[in-house]
Simulated scan of single mutants.
Amino acid sequence: MQLVQSIGSDIGKQRSTTLARSVLVGLIGGNIQQSRTPRMHEVEGARLGLRYSYQLVDVAVPRDTPLDIGQIVSAAALFGFAGLNVTYPYKQAIMPHLDVIDEGAARVGAVNTVVFSQGKTFGYNTDLWGFAQGFRLEMAQAPVNRVLQLGAGGAGSAVANALVECGVHELVIADLDTARARNLAERLTSGSARVSALPLDQIAAIKFDGIVNTTPMGMDKNPGMPIDPAMLNPSVWVADIVYFPLETALLASARARGCRTLSGAAMAVFQAVKAFELFTGIAADADAMRATFNAFETTKPWTETAD
């Protein structure tokens, strides 16, 4: 009961009995106080006439009783949550505590969205859908014969699966941990794309149509570029999933050289769009949620935690 009360103090509000439909959701993870996701969801919910409450369960906040992921899921169900978003360090740890894992999440090997429905828990990975949707809409007609992906972590796994879904013919994955890159490549070999791993010191010798950064390099707290800028020329498109800052060193360098670019806002917004639909059964307006996301750029500085 003490644990339930502890989580209850974090999630606080239960559903209202007003005529407006109430939706209670949350985000669990570490160092998530400045996440843009709650605001995107609540503003969209209000626009659609919902009493939409998005609560944070931040495991980095000191408390008397440590929060166990299985108990968090049980408590959220008890408090009437419609669903949960999940970020570091729980995207993989939460999977054994769920009843059903979506096929996409199973392929990625991580869950970032949980839906409570009919007494069961369903796990999804909206990062996969989010990157794919953003890429299809904002990078239409971009050449995809050979693409380099930098990073093979949790976010990298979602993006790699999305790139294969988007029709990339040959995907080359490079990571500081070559064994991790090789493992991800092997998990994707059953698809239509040719997928391989390559050490970072060998990528400069190969020509790519596009380059995607899924590493934390370029974040405000981890500045720099993950590749030699000499690899960039106007025939290469560049995508980054980092969104603080939106103009990473990689994207700034790419734009200066005439490259077509895709910022981390696309994946951040579209993963939230999909999660909102899963939570409510209502299609969200991507443009409206993007406007809310962009509003952060004109308000206050904040920090973001890598997934």
Rank of each mutant, 00 (worst) to 15 (best):
V212K: 01
V236D: 05
N222M: 15
V144R: 15
L184C: 07
A197D: 02
A174R: 07
F131S: 03
V238N: 10
Q71S: 14
T17S: 15
A254M: 04
V115K: 12
V111R: 06
P96Y: 05
R182K: 14
G264R: 09
P143H: 09
G191A: 06
L246W: 10
H97I: 03
R257A: 03
A286N: 06
L150K: 04
G83L: 07
P96M: 05
V108Q: 03
A106D: 08
L200K: 14
A197Y: 01
P199L: 01
L232K: 09
M139S: 07
G123S: 04
W129Q: 06
T248C: 12
L188I: 11
R290C: 02
V164N: 14
G167C: 08
L188C: 11
L184P: 08
I11H: 08
I72T: 07
P245K: 05
V108L: 11
R63C: 00
P38C: 04
A286W: 12
L78A: 10
P223E: 04
L98N: 02
E165H: 10
L137D: 12
N222F: 15
A155N: 00
G123F: 11
P226Q: 02
N183P: 04
T305K: 15
D58M: 05
Q55T: 03
A105N: 07
A284P: 08
L198S: 02
A77I: 01
I28S: 10
P245Y: 06
S190G: 10
R182G: 13
G130R: 12
S6E: 14
L246G: 00
N161R: 08
P234V: 00
Q2V: 00
V43K: 15
G70Y: 08
P66G: 00
I173Y: 13
V168Q: 13
M95C: 01
H97D: 03
R47D: 05
M219R: 11
A75M: 07
D287M: 12
V115M: 04
V212R: 00
L19M: 13
Y90V: 00
L171A: 14
W237G: 03
P66Y: 04
L198C: 05
G29Q: 07
P66L: 06
Y124P: 07
L250F: 12
N222E: 14
V23A: 00
P143F: 08
F116M: 07
A185L: 03
